[in-house]
Design a protein around this nucleic acid. Structure first.
Lengths: 203, 203
DNA sequence: GACTAACTTTAACCAAGTATAATTTTTGTG
DNA sequence: CACAAAAATTATACTTGGTTAAAGTTAGTC
């Protein structure tokens, strides 16, 4: 039931995304209009916005996943383990599977160059980060998040963002993937340790 | 030389800002167009943008000051004092002078209600926060900021933001200015303590 | 094969922001 | 005071992201 329709939609969505990404890589996010993307994907502008609520989501589609990963890690956490320990384990696991959220290579660095060149993409990224903080705080605090939970959640996301950004900068200055990875690991551990201290000293 | 000109400009800028603020309070940020503001201030749309680069700055003009306050506090810091201690002292000082960056009353809460109702204002606020982090990191690290400095700067700004937001939430739930203030104080101290631990354990 | 619900398109619209050239206002100078 | 340069303001037209409503198309169902 509805299989053909579903697969057509999936194909259309993918086509729009692919076409858009290619254009962004070629000329930069801001220099490409949604009209152009629509034309190149053989679709109308309205349809593009039907699949992607804002232009930024054409590029940042996958970034929403961090939130789910963080929340899931907390739900899977063993009794007695601190929340931060569970998140540290998640980071470790992602590093092992060379997940793009914790790792940098040429392809990923190229993608980031496009993002960093655009103020609106950076803004949307900050927004997604804040959503992740709120979701994480909720998970940490059970039903409703309080200040302490929000602070802790904020610190975790901050550690991640900062470590990743620093790792990327080092890669762009010529460091290898391996070196960039160890920069990431060292800095996120600094942040997580601080978060863990906060968690353990909670009232 | 040029005194009349300067004072006229100041007056125009102020008039635009006042008129805009009044309209925003009345109908919400997003429901007011720049055209309307211009008309109400007896000025053209172009002139509005001549004074305020973006619509958001009509509301968030003063928020840029945090950055200057933070940097100045670090420059004034006594030898031997930790950076975080200097920032803690700044917060203390602002609280004593009942500065709006650390305090909430009815007028301030009303202003925040307008801000919080608008996605674009919140986005601009996040951007300003990031700029503050970068400036602070630079100040912390001397010439060029490294990961450690950025993490520390991020923690300080996070503590501030989180404490303020929580304080505002408590005020909106009916707490007094005094109670909101102590919520702020307690939470920012939690964050600053964590930041201080990080600073002291620096390699 | 006709019907309906989902999807797409067309077309018109709004508002922020930019660019440009013309016009007005202010200022300093002879 | 007159006048030219500099600075500020204006009108106008344009671009682009995003929204809305109505008409058209297509897949799934009876």
């Amino acid at each position: 039931m509805g299989e053909l329709r579903e697969s057509k939609k999936r194909a259309t969505r993918q086509r729009i995304s692919d076409v858009a990404t290619a254009l962004f890589y070629e000329r930069g996010f801001d220099a490409v209009t949604v009209e152009e993307i629509a034309a190149a994907a053989n679709v109308s502008k309205v349809t593009v916005f039907n699949y992607f609520a804002r232009k930024e989501d054409l590029m940042l589609d996958r970034e929403h996943e961090v939130q789910a990963l963080l929340s899931q890690a907390l739900r899977d956490k063993a009794k007695g383990q601190t929340a931060v320990a569970a998140l540290r384990a998640l980071v470790e696991q992602l590093r092992e599977q060379k997940h793009p959220f914790v790792r940098i290579d040429d392809g990923i660095a190229t993608w980031w160059r496009v993002v960093i060149a655009s103020a609106s993409l950076k803004a949307r990224l900050r927004e997604i980060g804040d959503e992740a903080v709120e979701a994480l705080a909720l998970e940490l605090a059970g039903r409703k998040a309080g200040g302490e939970a929000r602070l802790l959640a904020g610190m975790v996301v901050l550690a991640w963002r900062t470590a990743y950004a620093e790792s990327l900068r080092s890669f762009e200055r010529g460091a290898s993937t391996k070196k960039a990875d160890s920069t990431f690991a060292a800095l996120i551990e600094r942040g997580l340790a601080a978060a863990e201290a906060l968690e353990k000293s909670a009232a």
